[in-house]
Every structure is written in structure tokens, then in C-alpha cells.
Simulated scan of single mutants.
Amino acid sequence: MTRFDASDPQSRRSLYVDAIAAHRDRGSQFVTIEVDENATAENPEAADLGVPWLQFAEGIVNLDCTGDELERLKSLLSEFPAFSIDELTRPEDAEGVNVRVSATADSDRIAQFLDRVIRIVYAFPETTRVWVVEL
């Protein structure tokens, strides 16, 4: 991979596909994507649990979300029939919910889902910059 950030829908989806391919080629534990810290400053509600992040590995998308974000995620899943909530964890010592979403799809569809999570679940605008922070 030669680039690690993107700030428009098409570039973000391309970045996600490339990151998933690099993750698989390297045999790394997972790939982690974070929303740019500047975007969270502009959208503090979406950063209630800190900088929003998504992880992908072995057909699972992992993310943290608030109760409202979880409801938006559940609604979004109706557009992605090959995706389903696999596990919800509500740690006693933390706010929010950790969600594991099973993703039985190719890299392109996973990339579409990741981008929609950033836009719909976390409610960030179309121009939000994301970073691949771990491969």
C-alpha cells in the first residue's frame, strides 16, 4: 500500500479494498481504520466514545458505538443482507457497545459497508477523511 488516507466516498472505498488486500497478503491480525481527529472535532456527537474506528479481520467488522449509533447500524444492515450482527458486548467499565458484524462478502462490498458505517452510523459528512492506522 502506498496511501493511507482518503476523504471522498470513492477514494475511501478504494482505500478499504487496498487495506483489506494488504491485510490478507501480510497475514496481519486485522486492519484498523480511524476517522480523522479533525473530523471528530467538527462532529463531537459522533466522537462520544472517542475517535470512531472500524476493524476488519476474518470476515468480521468490529466497531464501538453508542445506543443511537447501534440503532442506525441495525437499520443499515437491511441494505446489506450478507452482513449480520454476530455479537454485542456491553462492558461494565465502558460506555457504549462493541459490535461484531459478520461480513460474508467480497472486498468491494465490505468497503461499501465500511463507508456507509462512517456516513450513516457515525453521521460524518461525505468529505470525511479516514486513515488506515494498522495493517
Results as ranks from 00 to 15, higher is better:
Pro52Gln: 09
Asp36Tyr: 00
Ile118Glu: 06
Asp64Tyr: 13
Asp108Glu: 15
Ala123Val: 06
Glu87Leu: 09
Ala22Gly: 01
Ser78Met: 14
Phe56Trp: 14
Ala21Pro: 00
Val97Pro: 01
Glu92Ile: 10
Ala22Asn: 01
Ser7Tyr: 04
Glu126Trp: 06
Ile120Arg: 12
Ser28Leu: 07
Leu49Ile: 13
Glu37Thr: 08
Ala111Cys: 01
Pro52Met: 10
Gln29Trp: 09
Trp131Tyr: 15
Glu87Met: 09
Ala46Val: 03
Arg26Val: 00
Glu95Phe: 07
Thr66Ala: 08
Arg24Leu: 08
Ile85Phe: 03
Ser84Trp: 02
Met1Val: 09
Asn98Val: 12
Asp36Glu: 11
Leu88Ile: 08
Phe4Met: 03
Arg90His: 08
Pro81Leu: 03
Trp53His: 07
Leu88Gln: 09
Glu71Ile: 11
Leu70Arg: 14
Phe80Glu: 09
Glu79Val: 04
Ala39Lys: 06
Thr40Gln: 04
Ser84Thr: 05
Arg90Pro: 06
Leu88Ala: 03
Arg90Asp: 10
Arg119Phe: 02
Phe30Glu: 10
Arg12Gln: 07
Ala103Gln: 08
Gln112Trp: 07
Asn62His: 11
Val17Ile: 15
Arg24Ser: 07
Pro44Thr: 06
Arg26Glu: 11
Ile120Asn: 10
Thr104Cys: 06
Ala123Leu: 10
Arg129Tyr: 05
Gln112Ile: 07
Thr89Val: 15
Val97Trp: 08
Arg3Glu: 07
Pro44His: 04
Ser107Cys: 01
Thr32Lys: 14
Glu34Leu: 09
Glu134Tyr: 15
Asn98Thr: 13
Asp18Glu: 15
Val133Asp: 05
Val31His: 05
Val130Pro: 02
Glu37Met: 04
Ser84Ala: 12
Thr127Gly: 12
Arg72Leu: 15
Cys65Val: 11
Glu58Ile: 09
Ser28Lys: 11
Thr127Glu: 13
Asp36Arg: 01
Ala94Gln: 15
Val51Asn: 03
Tyr16Glu: 04
Leu77Arg: 07
Leu135Arg: 07
Asn62Gly: 05
Arg129Gly: 03
Leu70Ile: 12
Pro81Cys: 01
Gln29Lys: 11
Leu49Phe: 13
Ala22Asp: 04
Gly96Met: 02
Glu34Pro: 03
Asp115Lys: 05
Val31Gln: 05
Thr2Val: 04
Asn98Ala: 08
Glu92Cys: 00
Ala19Lys: 01
Thr127Cys: 06
Glu79His: 14
Tyr122Gly: 06
Leu88Asp: 03
Val133Glu: 02
Ala46Trp: 02
Ala123Ser: 14
Asp25Ile: 00
Asp18Asn: 08
Thr89Leu: 14
Arg24Gln: 13
Ala39Asn: 04
Asn38Met: 09
Asp8Ser: 14
